[in-house]
Amino acid sequence: MILDIIRKCENIVSHYVYINRMYGLQDEEYRLSRLFIDDNAQVYSISAFNKGHLKQWLLTNSDVHDYAEDMDDISLPKLKYLEFVLRFSKLYLEPSDSDFCISIVTYNPKPIHLSTLQSCQPNQYCFELLHSSPSTAYALSHRLLNILIRHQMLRCYLKSPEEDSSHIDLLCAFMYRETVYLARRGFFVRDMFLEHIAICAMRGYEEFHRRNWFNKVLSWINDEGCIQENPNCEYNTTSLLLKRNAGDEVMRKKLRRELRNELLKECHDHPMALVMIVLAHGIRYAVHYMSEVTYPLI
């Protein structure tokens, strides 16, 4: 069954690349799709499970953002965090900036050998975005995603192999602190919780492989195999957006309509994709440690 799923996914990617080929490499979406054709580099760069890599960052402050301590003692209000989820200033990584910086990875030459890293093709605009502060919520996870795609798909580094590795540790440490905060506050933004685990667990950090977290994720899946965002998150996010657009009744009607549509959906696309990745991490972790267990002969 798993092999069948893999083959179907390969067919979907190949078909998607094929139908967009006419746009060429000048098209951002076509460039993004091409990144996923060859998965050899991704398989080769899967990180081994590790303990303690995040330790030096977990109880320290840095310039990543100013709210880590408030998250650690869960004094940060939920609505304040939701503002981070929605807000993008010039120091945050805009979704369009993230997509662009991911898409240009395809311009890097293919690695000569998958066991070694080469320097990424320089782009000062993206370099500054990926190393700027502050970073919270999606801005934080998309900085890491950009760096990991370079590292794991094209086997290249932005600064140096050592500095990039340290930066990945730093970002995942702060993502872990956010993940713990979300868990302790009742998993009030499921998509964000899932995204942090999905991305950082690829690096083998055992901090992200918690049985109770995997069980919680499983509890969100209904009998049809679908998952929805936390309804309170949908209500509160829409409430914040309505306040932002207090003088625009057309936009307010649109926001209310979108909320109704989201609440009626049984399957929310982005959380569904993340759930599959998160559960794959859980299976890999379980299989890894089951293989180390010696069962007595009967």
Rank of each mutant, 00 (worst) to 15 (best):
residue 1 M to S: 15
residue 2 I to D: 15
residue 9 C to L: 11
residue 10 E to W: 04
residue 11 N to T: 12
residue 15 H to E: 14
residue 16 Y to E: 13
residue 19 I to Y: 06
residue 20 N to K: 15
residue 22 M to R: 15
residue 22 M to Y: 15
residue 26 Q to V: 08
residue 29 E to I: 12
residue 30 Y to F: 11
residue 31 R to Y: 04
residue 31 R to N: 02
residue 41 A to G: 07
residue 45 S to W: 04
residue 47 S to M: 01
residue 48 A to S: 07
residue 49 F to E: 12
residue 51 K to F: 02
residue 51 K to L: 05
residue 52 G to K: 00
residue 52 G to Y: 00
residue 53 H to R: 10
residue 58 L to E: 01
residue 59 L to G: 04
residue 62 S to P: 02
residue 63 D to V: 09
residue 69 E to D: 10
residue 72 D to M: 06
residue 73 D to N: 12
residue 75 S to Q: 12
residue 78 K to H: 05
residue 81 Y to W: 01
residue 82 L to A: 00
residue 83 E to G: 05
residue 84 F to I: 07
residue 85 V to Q: 06
residue 94 E to T: 10
residue 95 P to Y: 10
residue 99 D to C: 08
residue 100 F to H: 11
residue 101 C to Q: 13
residue 108 N to V: 04
residue 116 T to P: 00
residue 123 N to F: 02
residue 131 H to S: 08
residue 133 S to D: 07
residue 135 S to L: 05
residue 148 L to D: 04
residue 148 L to T: 03
residue 149 I to W: 03
residue 152 Q to C: 00
residue 158 L to D: 12
residue 164 D to C: 01
residue 176 Y to N: 06
residue 180 V to S: 06
residue 181 Y to N: 05
residue 181 Y to P: 14
residue 181 Y to L: 09
residue 182 L to V: 07
residue 182 L to T: 03
residue 186 G to W: 01
residue 189 V to H: 15
residue 199 I to S: 00
residue 204 G to D: 03
residue 205 Y to E: 04
residue 209 H to M: 15
residue 209 H to R: 10
residue 218 L to V: 07
residue 220 W to P: 05
residue 220 W to Q: 01
residue 221 I to K: 05
residue 223 D to V: 11
residue 227 I to M: 13
residue 230 N to G: 00
residue 231 P to K: 08
residue 232 N to R: 08
residue 233 C to N: 01
residue 238 T to V: 02
residue 239 S to E: 09
residue 240 L to S: 09
residue 241 L to N: 02
residue 247 G to R: 02
residue 250 V to R: 12
residue 252 R to D: 09
residue 252 R to F: 11
residue 254 K to H: 12
residue 255 L to P: 09
residue 255 L to M: 03
residue 262 E to V: 09
residue 264 L to S: 14
residue 264 L to F: 12
residue 264 L to K: 15
residue 266 E to I: 10
residue 273 A to K: 13
residue 278 V to W: 06
residue 283 I to N: 05
residue 284 R to N: 13
residue 284 R to T: 02
residue 288 H to L: 00
residue 291 S to G: 01
residue 293 V to I: 12
